[in-house]
Design a protein around this nucleic acid. Structure first.
Lengths: 234, 234
DNA sequence: GAGTGGTCTAGACCACCCG
DNA sequence: GGGTGGTCTAGACCACTCT
């Protein structure tokens, strides 16, 4: 249970940075000198430094050395759980309800993402995810059945397309877009909120090596859902 | 410009996973065998594998070996730029306007975060960030002047507290909370939108080794701002 | 040109944990 | 017990870039 040496080095350096002992832009000693100071191999220092650089604490450049980063705001890591797990974690009862299943020509934005020809059809699913007696999420999804032909046979009557896709589509790239929108009349009715109500909208585009697999628009009543950042790893 | 060997190994393995050649839960050969297959040192394979594990593609356990991860949805990496840079990137003119500066007892939630005694005062700043002639962001910030006494002398009349804090407070932990809210009458007036308008709200809490430094609530008109995920590193 | 970080090797030992 | 991943070393060479 002893701490790995590279982590100890990393922690020591991080403390020097966090304490203000080293200010923004200050140079750190080079890897070789630090290795001597800590009495370890250069690679051990290197690994600590690489992780600090990955996490945005320092900037490294050949020849120029390592400096404390000028604190450009680093990214935020959000964890987005599966909707049923999210609801379960709130000790609420999860229920899935399919509203629509059709094969249709997708709207222009989706057709472009799928690189579709005019009139080419995709699988369109609309469904609701309930937490107890509130609509927690409205899902509007298009699936590229040219890329995932097996999906065309699925009814998605008792479970959402997300479950199935996660288990059957190989690993892929996912892009998100998060924004706040006012509920239009149709969304308000389905989400059982007042028209104009603030919704948190996630748009998710899932890519595979063979192109865009699926596009989903997920809407939550604003007061029911928020995204929290993960604590940064030590 | 030749690709590092460990990256080539990583890419090769990732292709085997993405292509579906290896399905979820399937085992990969052990590091030593892969090293032989690729004709490289075990550490080189190890580094490729470690990065794949960090990115959520595989799960590694001692003795049990390495398996393709069962695709629990990985986290999302968002980059949140400084508001002036965000506006500049849109080719709009940035303008800062301070609305309020006072020393006052913060609301209960903030006082708790600051570990304040009853009646203890903090610096309170409200300001607007304009993009051309639209209010892009309303910032409502509390600064713990016990933790950052230098801040107490600043007027923040011509630039926002965020700039100054980024450059003067040592590296720290940041927590975010993102949600959608309806504009109340006061916010609507200041943001120059209709009451009830959907706002994207970011709450940011910045921690230091000495505790919570500052708490900020940032509100954007929903249609002006959205958060996009960074593409995952190759 | 020279000093820095980046990568790679061959070998070693350890910690963990499945069978 | 034994096989796996995790770490560490000493040494080497390379790529980049500042001066």
């Amino acid at each position: 249970m002893t701490k790995p040496l590279y982590k100890a080095v990393k922690t020591t350096l991080l403390e020097r940075i966090r304490s203000g002992d080293l200010a923004f832009g200050d140079p750190l000693p080079n890897d070789a000198d630090l290795a001597e100071e800590f009495g370890c191999a250069r690679l051990t220092v290197h690994r600590a430094m690489r992780e600090l650089a990955d996490e945005g604490y320092v900037e490294r450049r050949r020849r120029a050395g390592t400096r404390v980063a000028t604190r450009a705001s680093r990214g935020v890591q959000l964890s987005i759980a599966r909707v049923d797990e999210e609801i379960f974690a709130r000790h609420a009862v999860y229920r899935y309800e399919r509203l629509l299943r059709e094969k249709a020509a997708p709207p222009a934005a989706v057709a472009t993402a799928f690189a579709f020809n005019a009139g080419q059809k995709a699988l369109h699913i609309r469904c609701r995810h309930w937490a107890d007696d509130r609509v927690f999420q409205l899902e509007d999804r298009w699936i590229n059945i040219d890329a995932v032909p097996e999906a065309a046979e699925k009814a998605f009557l008792h479970y959402g397309p997300n479950h199935w896709l996660l288990e059957h589509v190989p690993f892929s790239e996912v892009r998100h877009d998060i924004s706040a929108v006012c509920a239009n009349a149709a969304d308000a009715a389905v989400l059982e909120v007042a028209a104009g109500h603030a919704l948190l909208r996630l748009r998710r585009m899932t890519m595979s090596t063979s192109g865009c697999i699926t596009v989903a628009e997920l809407k939550h009543p604003g007061e029911l859902f928020s995204l929290c950042s993960d604590p940064h790893p030590a």
